[in-house]
């Protein structure tokens, strides 16, 4: 290894150590503020130790909020994924159809633009009134939040098909339908994937809100109910779990995207 590489390695190690120290300082300060100085009572701000114990506790116990951590995760995943899959199944073909068929575009886009500005959260009360508190309402809410990015990105993906490629297909005698499947959709795949990625993110985010207001299990519910139970340590456990699963989704989809979507975004 030459000088240059050695220097780079040294820098990486140096900054890596700084990062680790920074994290340690963060946790130490947190610990001191709570367990040592008791700046705020336990039920408002837990110490890191309490969070960890609560987590371990939650692995098996269902009290006080009705399920173990796995029970909550399971409920959340069930809701999130069903709404998400539905949103994708409806949204992607709709987006493609809107972009490919001019009449569909002119008719559906104004309606879509009416629905789009309403934030997903604002749908919650309506969905509760229509579907009651249960899987139906939650899945419907998640559906709306996953549906919109899928449509938008599929639409943009098809729209970015270069006319030149379509002309080439035409000279080979492709019918309109064949062109859709052999040229347009493959070109659109990167953006469709982006739409899937964004939808999963918004679905997971909206899940929290949906569960807080319309549920009796799941991570969002856990966050909500433990407020009235004054168990801030469980709230933090739930928050971190939500974050962790969200990260797993993002990283997972990113690597899937890298493997299956060839050629990247360049036309």
């Amino acid at each position: 290894m030459n000088e240059y590489a050695k220097q780079r390695r040294k820098n990486k190690i140096k900054f890596g150590i700084v990062s680790v120290i920074s994290l340690c300082v963060f946790f130490t300060v947190w610990y001191i503020c709570t367990a040592v100085l008791h700046l705020k009572p336990d039920y408002i701000l837990p110490s890191p130790v309490q969070v960890v114990t609560a987590f371990i506790d939650k692995l098996t116990r269902t009290a006080p909020d009705g399920a173990t951590i796995f029970g909550h995760i399971g409920a959340s995943l069930q809701v999130a994924l069903s709404g998400y899959v539905l949103g994708a199944i409806v949204g992607i073909p709709l987006g493609i159809a809107m972009a490919w068929f001019r009449r569909v575009d002119m008719f559906v886009t104004p309606l879509f633009d009416l629905i789009r500005p309403v934030p997903t959260i604002a749908w919650i009360p309506l969905m509760i009134l229509w579907f009651g508190i249960g899987l139906g309402a939650k899945a419907a809410i998640i559906f709306v939040s996953a549906f919109v990015p899928c449509v938008i990105n599929s639409y943009a993906g098809i729209k970015q098909t270069k006319p030149v490629h379509l002309w080439v297909a035409q000279t080979f005698g492709a019918s309109r339908r064949e062109m859709l499947f052999t040229v347009a959709i493959p070109t659109a795949l990167p953006l469709i994937f982006t739409g899937l990625r964004i939808s999963l993110g918004t679905a997971w985010m909206t899940l929290c809100a949906a569960e807080m207001l319309a549920s009796n299990k799941g991570l969002g519910y856990m966050i909500q109910v433990n407020r009235s139970l004054a168990r801030a340590d469980l709230i933090v456990v739930a928050m971190l779990t939500v974050g962790l699963i969200g990260t797993i989704f993002t990283v997972g989809l990113n690597s899937l995207e890298k493997r299956f979507v060839k050629g990247g975004r360049r036309g």
């Binding site: 900054f15 890596g16 700084v18 990062s19 680790v20 920074s22 994290l23 963060f26 959260i121 997971w204 985010m205 929290c208 809100a209 807080m212 969002g220 966050i223 909500q224 433990n226 407020r227 801030a232 709230i235 933090v236 739930a238 928050m239 971190l240 939500v242 974050g243 962790l244 969200g246 990260t247 993002t250």
Partner: peptide
């Protein structure tokens, strides 16, 4: 970057709505 990024990446995935209770 070395100092703040780890803490930022730890807290970032938590959706704002999840913070409501706390």
């Amino acid at each position: 970057e070395a100092i703040f990024k780890p803490i930022f990446e730890l807290l970032r995935p938590i959706p704002p709505i999840a913070w409501i209770s706390l």
